[in-house]
Design a protein around this nucleic acid. Sequence first.
RNA 1: GGCCCCAUCGUCUAAUGGUUAGGACCUCGCCCUUUCACGGCGGUAAUAGGGGUUCGAAUCCCCUUGGGGUCACCA
Length: 483
Amino acid sequence: MKEIRVRFAPSPTGYLHVGGLRTALYNYLYAKKNNGKFILRIEDTDRNRYVEGAVENLTAALNWAGLDYNEGPDIGGNYGPYMQSQRLEIYKKHADELIAKGEAYYCFCSAERLQKLREEQEKQKLPQAKYDKHCLSLSKTEIEQNLKNNLPYVIRLNVKPNQKIIFDDIIRDRVEFDSNNVDDQVLIKSDGYPTYHLANVVDDHLMEISHVIRGEEWLSSTPKHVLLYDAFKWERPKFAHLPLLLNPDKSKLSKRQGDVAVEDYRDKGYLKEALINFVALLGWNAGDDKEFYYMNELIEKFSLDRVNKAGAVFDIQKLNWLNAEHLRKMHDDDILKLLKKEILNSQFSTLNLPDNYLFQIITAMKERVAFVKEFITTCQYFYTPTTEYEQKSVEKNWKPETPEHLRKLIDEFKLLDNPSKEDFEHAFGKTAEQLGIGKGKLIHPLRLAVSGQSTGPGMFDLLFILGKDEVIKRIEKAIEVLG
RNA sequence: GGCCCCAUCGUCUAAUGGUUAGGACCUCGCCCUUUCACGGCGGUAAUAGGGGUUCGAAUCCCCUUGGGGUCACCA
């Protein structure tokens, strides 16, 4: 059996689009599942779109997500180079070959003529603007003369009329086009660079790509590619056109309606495990009810014939849920590493808290957060003494007799020696009993005094983590401030 | 507008001729818990419409409607 070789072929726009991430992921999963190769190729054939550092951003994002490729611009491989801008001679040579075969031709038409042509066709209400094959009828000597005079030219695909163009798609089955609707696509631009259509076909063939797995936006230009494979007499790869990722309004996922770069999600604190899991489920499922996946499970379960046909709305709420799920199931050691990074980027960067203390925060808060940074933001009282007290809780829980009650509690706590969680609990229970009040009357003011908040981890976990001295200090402070 | 693709709860989806149309997110209610979460239980909510084919259609066919993609010397 032929080796499975798939590729992710983005243009270097400066960032990795989440739709691109999904496409890359499906390619990756398919390769891994079938012991194949996953290749990164950069489609940088548009000189006007050159973006500084774009390739580095792309590879960094792919690496972050864990989508390792077997061949690519930065790591090489046997089918390089993997930057299309470095393969110009290859495309030229193949374009010449097509010209020799009559499958392509030189076109010297100016932009002005093309513009005029388009306007005229529009005026005539023609269903579709198309090049009129004007230059196809140029004589050999005319062409040579033009070339000798250094007239700018492009090379166009010579599409024969009245042909059915049929190809099979793994996801959409059989798709059929009429060649009358296919324009004589430019293959080589006047700057000598190829267009996407030529470059991707030539490269996919030369790189022995077995499956072209890409977004549905390419479906309508696939006839051009098929025509090229046929013109070269090359075997066509298998095609799989993935459904699009959609905005909430069902249009193609775009920048205007929210974050679209995987870097954005990374920077917002989404776990790569969650993003991968989420994006994998946008257009694919294993046929069961499982929703929580790690990468290795995705590899094991993935198949192209269970990919959906219809577009999928990118639902941030479900992503958030998955992020929380992945965070909860993550090992504390791994959370610790991430948390330390977050602390370094926070107002507490100079704190230098011991691992042991951070582990306790993680344990206490794990069920209560969805993002790593929330181990800081939702419980700042673990990092700095409380100075502000939630107004609503003060009104509800801070009664005139509260300071007296808390003073009694301080006295009890003072008697404790290196107290455990249970010691705190006993002392607390004893105090409530001696005061002749319900525990609820005491527990809410205590939480307020110690954390400034009305919500948080279990009361005695909180006391234990903070420690006796700190707890007493904070209660005294609260009595002083709230009176 | 031409061409192409698509159509199950608000969203992601399962059910590939026979199910009370299932699950998840969201949302609501209850339980657990003297906080908040987690967790558990339950509720609301879908086969776009119309024709066929069939004993039987979410599922196959046709039409309509709706949505999307694409029509560059961008990818």
